[in-house]
């Protein structure tokens, strides 16, 4: 067995951060929906999968990866908006479990529709030609495409932060999350704000799925395993906290990676152990507001 060198350890942490990048994108969308709309979106994994299949379809019509990167999150975001308008909206103000159950069922419907449309077989998804191969990052070789995923996640984070903190629309969204009643009295159509937020959340899931496709191909149930991790990340970071989603996403990635170094069989279990420990010490997660779920 190879010795544990500082380079390997550094590489392992870096691999964990890269892995965490996709978790961050997933958890961001999920946390956004919960923090703003109090919707626990069980269909988030299905939207993730739609991102990959949307790209498969678009590539089939002669699009390239870069076109997909721009259009697919937009298109799936529109699907998400339609879902909000038709299915989720009638449930606002009912209990938290209504949208939860609805999205739980919706996930099955979406996955089955994709199975009918694309078949149950795994579909190949090539890494874009410009991003293939591995580059030496000083501590060893790392796939160029994974570096690209980290970069995209960084850009999305900055963009989302600027949008929410520096634009007037972002101000409305934040206000709407804190007190929709007052915002409505001020003459703002809160319904439209929520529609946009739902679109952003599902669009982020689609982006994560699209970015994951060159790593693992496309399959109808690809959203299942990542949904579980995204929930863990959201809970550890604090339901509704975007900063929490980012930090917890990266942390979970690093925990998986470092556990893999000593006991790869236990890497997935370690994620849930982490969640259990955090919940015992700090039930609301890193940055969550206590009592939001009740």
């Amino acid at each position: 067995m190879a010795g544990l060198t500082p380079d390997l350890l550094a590489m392992q942490v870096f691999a964990g951060l890269a892995l965490g990048a996709v978790y961050v994108l997933m958890a961001l969308g999920m946390s956004l929906l919960f923090g703003m709309l109090t919707v626990v979106n069980f269909a988030h994994g299905a939207f993730y999968m739609l991102g990959a299949y949307g790209a498969v379809a678009l590539l089939g019509y002669g699009g390239n990866f870069w076109v997909c990167l721009f259009f697919i999150p937009l298109a799936v975001g529109l699907v998400g908006m339609a879902v909000e308008r038709v299915l989720i909206r009638p449930l606002y103000g009912r209990g938290i479990d209504y949208p939860l159950l609805l999205t739980f069922g919706l996930a099955y419907v979406i996955v089955e529709l994709v199975r009918i449309g694309f078949g149950t077989e795994d579909l190949p998804f090539d890494t874009p030609a410009a991003l293939t191969g591995a580059v030496n990052i000083g501590i060893g070789y790392f796939p160029l495409y994974r570096l690209f995923v980290i970069a995209v996640t960084g850009v999305v984070l900055v963009g989302l932060w600027l949008f929410l903190e520096r634009t007037s629309y972002g101000l409305i969204i934040r206000a709407g999350a804190r007190d929709p009643q007052i915002v409505r009295i001020l003459g703002i159509d809160v319904g439209r704000v929520w529609l946009v937020v739902f679109g952003i959340g599902t669009g982020l899931a689609a982006l994560a799925g699209l970015l994951a496709a060159p790593l693992q191909g496309a399959s109808p149930d690809m959203g299942d395993s990542i949904l579980a991790i995204a929930f863990v990340v959201t809970v550890v970071g604090g339901m509704g906290s975007l900063l929490g989603a980012v930090l917890a996403g990266l942390l979970v990635g690093v925990v998986v990676s470092l556990t893999s170094l000593v006991a790869p069989e236990a890497a997935q279990v370690a994620v849930f152990v982490l969640m259990a420990v955090v919940l015992l010490v700090r039930p609301q997660g890193f940055f969550g507001r206590a009592g939001l779920m009740s």
Binding site: M1, A2, T5, D7, L8, M11, Q12, A15, G16, A18, L19, G140, Y141, P143, R146, A212, L215, Q216, M222, S225, I226, V256, S257, S260, L261, P264, E265, A267, Q268
Partner: peptide, 21 residues
């Protein structure tokens, strides 16, 4: 090296650096 990971693993990036090393 002799590494086993769970069935259904979709990301091997955390064990590959060790194999490369």
């Amino acid at each position: 090296a002799d590494i086993s990971v769970p069935l259904g693993t979709t990301d091997f990036s955390t064990v590959l650096p060790r194999i490369a090393a």
